[in-house]
Amino acid sequence: MKDMPQLGMGTFRLEGDEATSAVTSALKVGFRHVDTAQFYDNEENVGDAIKTSGLARSELFVTTKVWHENLGKNAFIPSVHESLAKLKLEYVDLLLIHWPYPGDDLTMEDYLGSLKEVKQLGLARHIGVSNFTIGQLEQAERILGEGEIYTNQIELHPFMQNRQVVEACREKGIGVTAYMPFAVGKVMKDETLKAIALDHDASPAQIVLAWMEKRKISAIPSSTSESHLAQNVDYSRVVLTADDLKRIDDLDNGDRIVNPDFAPNWD
């Protein structure tokens, strides 16, 4: 069974045949982690791509996420069965709570209890959270127990490095997974990243992925271009210097992209 690869294929905003095609291309060029979610409405397309890839199930790491409308006791486990049916899988490798529940009519004990039950039923190998603040992580760890939270998936890119949350995860032994690692294309236009990329005969995207690996942060970039996907997979040939790393660290300016009205009070 695979541990979560450093690099995964993100599928946010990919729909229908485009999602199937993009995931097919990602698996073809070497991706072995695919990240989806109930909310993305593309689990069926991801499942189609996995099924036709010819890859052994044990070679793949598949993540999906439970949307907050399905966190109630009566909806949670049926929604996971529905996700698995769409994905055409008997289990996912990682099941996440997509967002902390925004209302006060459902407690974290309730929905994390359901999350743990899903793991006990063998429907998910690992469980974790997404978009959780430090306080919410501490509460979740108290409920689930130490070592149960596999990762916290958060927005993280050179311009929003989320350092307090990353440090809290490190202290708890919780992995960090970066979504939107390229800041919806902003990294491609940044002069510092372009200069570092030029030094290494690489793309700014490869530079960011190499930086994330050095910082022990997993990443799930999204792309529909097979050539860009192949470039992303090939990031590991880039060896950044200490000066490169510092220059990227210095790009942090708190530029948050994802902030819906149901988001928690960020750290």
Rank of each mutant, 00 (worst) to 15 (best):
L94M: 11
G54D: 09
T20N: 01
G10P: 04
A263W: 00
Q164D: 15
Y150T: 14
A56D: 13
F39N: 05
S225T: 10
W67L: 03
S130A: 14
F76Y: 10
F39R: 11
L55A: 07
E146A: 15
F12K: 15
E167L: 12
H68R: 08
Q153A: 05
Y235F: 13
D104E: 15
I248M: 01
A242F: 01
D110R: 06
L123P: 04
K194N: 15
D267E: 06
F182M: 11
S222N: 12
I77Q: 11
K214I: 09
V92C: 13
N162D: 08
Q161P: 00
D48E: 13
V238R: 02
C169Y: 09
C169P: 01
V233D: 11
M1Q: 13
V233A: 05
T177Q: 10
G175D: 05
T177S: 05
L121T: 03
Q231A: 13
E148G: 01
V187H: 00
D199G: 04
Q120L: 11
G8Q: 05
K2D: 15
H98I: 10
G16S: 14
P102E: 02
V165W: 05
T133E: 14
V176G: 00
D35R: 05
D41G: 09
Y235E: 06
D190W: 00
K51H: 12
V258I: 15
N152W: 02
Q153I: 01
D48V: 11
E146T: 10
R142A: 13
T20P: 00
E171S: 12
L198E: 15
Q161Y: 03
I217K: 12
V233C: 08
F132V: 03
E69R: 06
T64I: 03
V66I: 06
Y40N: 01
E138F: 00
N152E: 04
F159C: 05
R142C: 09
A178T: 08
K246G: 07
M9V: 11
G135L: 07
L115G: 02
Q136N: 08
T224E: 05
V80S: 07
F76M: 00
M212W: 07
A205S: 07
Y101D: 00
L60K: 06
E43Y: 08
H157V: 10
L144T: 04
A205I: 01
W211R: 01
G175Q: 04
Y101H: 07
L94V: 14
D41I: 01
N253S: 12
M4I: 14
A205E: 12
P264H: 09
P264C: 03
M212L: 13
R215D: 01
E82N: 11
N162Q: 12
F159T: 03
D244I: 01
Q38H: 09
V23Q: 00
P5M: 07
G54T: 11
Q139P: 02
G16T: 09
N259G: 15
I207E: 03
L137V: 11
I220F: 01
N232S: 09
E43V: 08
D93T: 06
